[in-house]
Amino acid sequence: KEEVSSHTSPETGIWVTLGSEVFDVTEFVDLHPGGPSKLMLAAGGPLEPFWALYAVHNQSHVRELLAQYKIGEL
């Protein structure tokens, strides 16, 4: 988790977690339908608090999209 928390910018890579999985979403930030700034709120940390607020994320196609960016496990 400490390593994930240091990845919060395009220069270091933008990493997020979901459960025990780690994702590098650097290439996706500008494609995020809610805008880059919304995704950047989660940079370096867990997606769960944000996904709890926005139910649109609880769809299979969203998880499939995220899976493409998986880089490891906590």
Rank of each mutant, 00 (worst) to 15 (best):
K1R: 06
K1N: 03
K1Q: 02
K1S: 03
E2F: 15
E2R: 10
E3R: 11
E3F: 15
E3L: 14
E3N: 13
E3W: 12
E3H: 10
E3Y: 11
E3A: 12
V4N: 07
V4D: 08
S5P: 09
S5F: 14
S5M: 15
S6A: 15
H7K: 10
H7L: 04
T8C: 13
S9G: 14
S9K: 14
P10Q: 14
P10G: 14
P10D: 10
P10K: 14
P10L: 12
E11G: 14
E11W: 08
E11V: 10
T12N: 14
T12I: 08
T12Q: 12
T12R: 13
T12V: 11
T12Y: 07
T12D: 13
T12C: 07
G13K: 04
G13T: 05
G13Y: 02
I14L: 12
I14W: 01
I14Y: 02
I14Q: 01
W15P: 03
W15A: 02
W15L: 10
V16M: 13
V16K: 00
V16Y: 06
V16A: 09
V16G: 08
V16Q: 01
T17M: 13
T17Y: 05
T17E: 10
L18N: 11
G19E: 10
G19Y: 07
G19A: 11
S20Q: 15
S20K: 10
E21Q: 13
V22A: 15
V22I: 15
V22F: 09
V22Q: 06
F23N: 00
F23W: 00
F23R: 01
F23L: 03
F23K: 02
D24H: 08
D24R: 06
D24K: 06
D24A: 11
D24P: 02
V25C: 03
V25K: 01
V25M: 06
V25A: 03
V25P: 05
V25Y: 00
T26C: 03
T26F: 02
T26Y: 01
T26Q: 03
T26A: 08
E27A: 11
E27H: 07
E27I: 01
F28T: 00
F28W: 07
V29W: 05
V29L: 12
D30S: 10
D30W: 12
D30T: 09
D30N: 12
L31D: 06
L31I: 13
L31R: 10
L31E: 07
H32D: 10
H32Y: 10
P33A: 01
P33E: 02
P33W: 01
P33V: 01
P33S: 06
P33Y: 00
G34D: 00
G34S: 01
G35V: 02
G35P: 06
G35R: 01
G35C: 02
G35Q: 06
P36I: 04
P36V: 07
P36R: 13
P36N: 03
P36C: 08
P36A: 13
S37E: 13
S37V: 07
S37P: 08
K38E: 02
K38S: 07
K38W: 08
K38C: 09
L39S: 01
L39T: 00
L39V: 11
L39R: 05
L39D: 02
M40Q: 06
M40Y: 04
L41T: 06
L41D: 11
L41H: 07
L41W: 01
A42T: 04
A42L: 09
A42S: 05
A42N: 02
A42E: 00
A43N: 04
A43F: 13
A43M: 07
A43G: 04
G44R: 04
G44S: 06
G44F: 01
G44K: 00
G44W: 10
G45Q: 08
G45S: 10
G45N: 08
L47Q: 01
L47Y: 08
L47I: 06
L47T: 01
E48S: 00
E48N: 02
E48K: 11
E48H: 00
E48Q: 02
E48I: 14
E48V: 12
F50W: 15
F50Q: 08
F50N: 03
F50C: 03
F50A: 07
W51M: 04
W51Q: 04
W51T: 01
A52M: 09
A52Y: 04
A52D: 15
A52W: 02
A52S: 14
A52C: 03
A52N: 15
L53R: 15
L53K: 15
L53A: 14
L53I: 14
Y54S: 12
Y54W: 03
Y54E: 12
Y54C: 09
Y54H: 13
A55I: 01
A55M: 06
A55H: 14
A55R: 12
A55E: 15
A55Q: 15
A55V: 08
V56S: 07
V56W: 14
V56H: 13
V56Y: 06
V56T: 08
V56G: 03
V56R: 05
H57L: 01
N58M: 10
N58G: 06
N58E: 11
N58W: 11
Q59T: 12
Q59P: 05
Q59F: 01
S60H: 11
S60K: 14
S60V: 13
S60Q: 12
S60W: 09
S60G: 12
H61I: 04
V62R: 05
V62D: 05
V62Y: 02
R63I: 06
R63K: 13
E64Q: 12
L65A: 10
L65N: 08
L65R: 11
L65C: 12
A67L: 11
A67N: 15
A67E: 14
A67D: 14
Q68I: 05
Q68E: 11
Q68T: 14
K70S: 05
K70H: 04
I71T: 09
I71K: 07
I71V: 15
I71N: 07
G72T: 04
G72N: 13
G72K: 03
G72D: 07
G72A: 14
L74R: 14
L74F: 15
L74N: 08
